[in-house]
């Protein structure tokens, strides 16, 4: 790439985003490698939320204006909240199915014996 001068803010932003990307990669590797469903949940929610935070920060730095930064922060908060709720629901589902993500598709959607309705999310 031709060495065009990159302003300081962009360089910092790019660096933060690169760091965020590393966390995303870590989260994905975690999801693939971890043995049980619940541990995979950890990898996904924690690493990805952190990664997104860094990316958002980098974007805010590059964008520069306060309004944009505020909106980006809002995005980050929403994703974090949704991630948390999702994780809770999936964890509850896993717990009801005896700690393991059900293998066959049939058992996944049919009502477990405990009679608790499962909400597919």
């Amino acid at each position: 790439m031709s060495a065009i001068p990159i302003p300081a803010s962009e360089a910092a932003g790019l660096a933060l985003m690169a760091l965020g990307a590393v966390f995303f990669v870590a989260g994905t590797v975690g999801m693939l490698r971890f043995p049980c469903a619940v541990s995979r949940l950890h990898a996904l929610t924690k690493a990805d939320t952190m990664g997104l935070g860094l990316v958002v920060l980098g974007a805010a730095v590059m964008a520069g204006t306060g309004g944009a930064a505020l909106r980006l922060a809002l995005i980050w908060i929403c994703v974090a909240l949704a991630g948390a709720l999702g994780a809770q629901l999936i964890a509850a589902f896993v717990r009801r199915h005896g700690g393991q993500w059900p293998e066959t598709e049939a058992s996944a959607t049919e009502m477990p014996d405990t009679g608790t309705p499962e909400v597919g999310q």
């Binding site: 809770q88 629901l89 509850a92 608790t116 309705p117 909400v119």
Partner: peptide, 8 residues
């Protein structure tokens, strides 16, 4: 029923 009332 599945005890997730408060979270939701």
């Amino acid at each position: 029923a599945d005890g997730l009332g408060p979270v939701q």
